[in-house]
């Protein structure tokens, strides 16, 4: 137990930084969200009008729906792919460390680099993917991957998954390391096949890793902004405009500081609600 004076002094630097650049900004966001502030000059208090606008125009619910679709695809595919990769590598100790590091490498790169490289891979004429398809005689399969509203979001999701699947795999492998050897051994002695052990022993025992992976990737993808911003600028036709991209656009494209703030508040509510529900549900699942 520290004295009141020590408590104050020790927490002072963190309090100043967090107060000035976290607590005060959140309060200010809330306040701005009820104004028509443009960042300069006086702003008028306009009550709930920003929020009414969000609900009444198709554009904003669509941005939210885009964000949710992106999150669902990324979290599902990345978690399952990471699980399968980890299960395979767990059974192949000879190449485990090499593969884990290799898969992890893209996570060391920035969104800017990954975004640009994949943008070019998807580009219609000299892009890597279409060239590969043409080379394989599959000319009919070539596509303007980022130019078509039906495929653009999934193309970006694939780049995102590529970037982080190694992270997911590494976390599952850490979960595998916590499974006692004798449990696996017992399963083997009972004549369980490799797949049966995976299904009935490993998956239940990996529950804590599921929680971490799902929560980390959900929080990471709900706020996704970088890849859509770099690869498509939210296009084509708004198909990849996520909530964060909309916030940045309103802020620095239209100087609607008040309106951008109301979108931020919506985002905060959604992220906290999702984190809360996931945490409760996944933790409960772990206990079973």
């Amino acid at each position: 137990m520290l004295s009141r004076r020590s408590f104050f002094l020790f927490t002072l630097p963190a309090s100043i930084v967090l107060g000035l650049f976290f607590v005060y900004p959140i309060a200010l966001t809330l306040q701005l969200s009820f104004t028509n502030s443009t960042g300069v000059g006086e702003a008028d208090w306009i009550g709930w009008r920003n929020y009414e606008r969000i609900v009444s125009r198709d554009r904003y619910p669509e941005a939210l729906w885009t964000t949710i679709k992106f999150t669902l695809v990324v979290v599902t595919v990345q978690t399952l792919a990471g699980l399968v990769l980890a299960a395979l590598l767990h059974r192949l100790p000879a190449i485990r460390n090499f593969c884990r590091a290799a898969l992890f490498t893209p996570a060391m790169m920035s969104f800017v680099v990954v975004g640009y490289v994949w943008q070019f891979i998807y580009s219609p004429f000299s892009g890597g993917l279409n060239s590969l398809l043409r080379g394989a005689g599959l000319d009919d399969w070539t596509w303007g991957w980022l130019g078509d509203p039906d495929t653009a979001l999934y193309a970006i999701a694939l780049a995102h998954i590529w970037m982080f699947v190694g992270y997911t795999t590494a976390i599952f492998l850490a979960g595998y390391a916590n499974i006692p050897d004798d449990i696996e051994e017992a399963g083997r002695l009972d004549g369980a096949s490799s797949f049966q052990r995976f299904r009935y022993l490993e998956i239940p025992l990996l529950a804590p890793s599921f929680t971490i992976n799902v929560m980390l990737s959900t929080i990471g993808t709900l706020k996704t902004f970088e890849l859509p911003f770099i690869m498509t600028r939210g296009g084509p036709d708004g198909a990849t405009r996520t909530l964060s991209l909309e916030i940045i656009d309103q802020l620095f494209g239209n100087y609607r500081f008040g309106f951008a703030s109301s979108l931020s508040i919506i985002m905060l509510i959604i992220v906290i609600a999702v984190a809360f529900v996931q945490n409760r549900y996944l933790r409960k699942r772990e206990l079973r």
Binding site: F7, T11, S15, L18, L20, F21, F22, V23, Y24, P25, I26, L28, T29, L32, G39, I219, L222, K223, F225, L243, S244, I247, I248, L251, F257, A260, S261, S264, I265, M267, L268, V271, I272, A275
Partner: peptide, 29 residues
């Protein structure tokens, strides 16, 4: 103490808050 508990709660909130929530006021500040 209550002060410590409030601080910890704030920190937990900070963990979940994406920086897009505070980006507008941070720019203004």
């Amino acid at each position: 103490t209550p002060a410590a508990r409030i601080f910890i709660m704030l920190v937990a909130l900070g963990l979940a808050t994406p920086n897009f929530v505070t980006i507008t006021p941070i720019f203004v500040i």
